[in-house]
Amino acid sequence: MISIKELRKEFTVNDKKIVAVDNLTLDIEKGEIFGVIGYSGAGKSTFIRLLNGLEQPTSGEVFVNDKKFSHMKGESLRIARQKVSMIFQHFNLLWSRTVEENIEFPLEIAGVPKKERKQRVHHLIELVGLKGREKSYPSQLSGGQKQRVGIARALANEPDVLLGDEATSALDPETTDAILDLLVDINERLGITIVLITHEMHVIQKICHRVAVMEDGKIVETGKVLDVFQNPQETITKRFVSQLTGVEDTLPTLETIFQHYPNGSLIQLTFVGQTTEEPVLTELIRNFQVTASVVHGNMNQTKDGPYGTLIVHIDGETKQIHDALQYLQSIDVKAEVLNNGSTNNE
């Protein structure tokens, strides 16, 4: 569906060259919800503008549905971009137009006949849950309703790809979840490929099939969301994962915990899928003659299944602790020994 090869974008600011996207290669499959996450300045927004042709690359190629978007110009680019739509952080609605007129606007530009426009707008209003608000103006809508208008407008030309640039970051948590649920529904009903640019790990966790982590214009890590959660490789990825697990908030207290339990081991356990439902600590205590105290715990649900973490203090004989850790690995529970705020793979 989307193939990106050695993509690079340079800007010159005050005679200084800035590389916003640096040799980026990535493939996004048809019909998946793909997340790109990174902190401010990572190059995410430039990347998404390269995807829909708003920016042209310094070098490299972008293919969407076997069409080469990179370096496409004029009328051919305008027509191609009708199949790659955007939803925006701040909605970008026309304030002098009603809900239905906003949704109809791209159809007018595309020259769609009036009768067909009206039919499609009616269908889209139903799809995004705005029935009864057709004649309302943006100033009369909540933030979530405005974004629903933005989504309906983006779908007006029946695109193959829907791009979201921080599409939920201006919304409260409850509204964010409602919009994310709507995007999942659209993805499943229409089979549309969705690419979400975000700095919020919750967005990735809730609806994405795969994720790419951006830093300094590069993709530093990519994979299935559950795999990345279970085994993050890069420091920045670990920081994002810790936003959900809460481990980062717990680590400063580890030195204090070790002062109270100098002879034990503090273990971070990672559970995925079925193991989240297993009585793991009960088995440790029963079979290995150790004591186990939970210091911190968290459970999250991803698109592909549950993911949980526990920080546990385990005390007992050295051999018993070693055997307990071997048992955890045998049942696919990842165990890391924490030592004064740092981690070492066991």
Rank of each mutant, 00 (worst) to 15 (best):
residue 182 L to Q: 08
residue 161 V to S: 11
residue 217 G to C: 06
residue 197 I to V: 15
residue 247 V to C: 05
residue 256 T to A: 12
residue 250 T to E: 15
residue 196 L to K: 06
residue 190 L to C: 07
residue 157 N to K: 11
residue 237 T to N: 00
residue 246 G to D: 03
residue 257 I to A: 01
residue 190 L to P: 06
residue 154 A to G: 15
residue 262 P to S: 10
residue 184 V to G: 07
residue 190 L to Y: 02
residue 226 L to Q: 06
residue 217 G to N: 08
residue 242 S to M: 13
residue 202 H to K: 15
residue 215 E to I: 01
residue 191 G to L: 09
residue 193 T to L: 05
residue 254 L to G: 03
residue 157 N to I: 08
residue 167 A to Q: 15
residue 162 L to W: 10
residue 172 D to Q: 08
residue 204 I to M: 13
residue 233 Q to W: 00
residue 187 N to K: 04
residue 181 D to S: 15
residue 193 T to K: 12
residue 217 G to E: 03
residue 166 E to S: 07
residue 264 G to N: 07
residue 176 T to G: 13
residue 166 E to R: 04
residue 202 H to P: 01
residue 197 I to D: 10
residue 245 T to Y: 11
residue 159 P to K: 12
residue 203 V to D: 10
residue 178 A to T: 15
residue 167 A to H: 13
residue 155 L to W: 12
residue 223 G to I: 02
residue 175 T to A: 12
residue 194 I to P: 02
residue 258 F to L: 06
residue 226 L to M: 07
residue 228 V to Y: 00
residue 199 H to P: 09
residue 164 G to C: 09
residue 248 E to K: 11
residue 220 V to N: 01
residue 154 A to I: 02
residue 258 F to H: 13
residue 202 H to S: 12
residue 227 D to F: 02
residue 159 P to Q: 09
residue 226 L to R: 04
residue 186 I to P: 04
residue 205 Q to P: 02
residue 200 E to L: 05
residue 191 G to H: 13
residue 160 D to F: 04
residue 184 V to T: 11
residue 259 Q to N: 15
residue 221 E to H: 00
residue 229 F to H: 09
residue 156 A to I: 08
residue 220 V to G: 01
residue 157 N to W: 13
residue 171 L to F: 11
residue 263 N to R: 13
residue 216 D to E: 15
residue 225 V to T: 14
residue 166 E to A: 04
residue 236 I to L: 08
residue 189 R to N: 14
residue 199 H to C: 05
residue 221 E to Q: 03
residue 163 L to P: 08
residue 239 R to S: 14
residue 203 V to W: 11
residue 156 A to W: 12
residue 175 T to H: 02
residue 256 T to C: 04
residue 251 L to P: 06
residue 182 L to G: 08
residue 195 V to I: 14
residue 219 I to L: 02
residue 260 H to L: 09
residue 162 L to A: 02
residue 232 P to M: 03
residue 233 Q to M: 00
residue 178 A to W: 00
residue 256 T to N: 13
residue 228 V to N: 00
residue 169 S to G: 11
residue 228 V to S: 00
residue 241 V to F: 01
residue 229 F to A: 05
residue 233 Q to T: 00
residue 153 R to S: 09
residue 185 D to V: 10
residue 264 G to Q: 07
residue 269 L to S: 06
residue 257 I to G: 01
residue 246 G to E: 08
residue 222 T to M: 02
residue 234 E to H: 05
residue 268 Q to V: 14
residue 240 F to P: 07
residue 214 M to K: 06
residue 223 G to E: 01
residue 263 N to Y: 11
residue 170 A to P: 06
residue 198 T to Q: 12
residue 162 L to N: 04
residue 268 Q to M: 14
residue 154 A to K: 10
residue 207 I to D: 09
residue 211 V to Y: 06
residue 175 T to Y: 04
residue 259 Q to W: 06
residue 220 V to H: 00
residue 214 M to W: 07
residue 206 K to V: 03
residue 188 E to I: 11
residue 236 I to K: 02
residue 256 T to S: 14
residue 249 D to I: 03
residue 266 L to K: 02
residue 245 T to V: 05
residue 175 T to E: 01
residue 248 E to P: 00
residue 243 Q to T: 11
residue 232 P to C: 05
residue 264 G to M: 09
residue 168 T to I: 07
residue 242 S to Q: 11
residue 175 T to L: 02
residue 227 D to N: 12
residue 254 L to S: 09
residue 189 R to I: 14
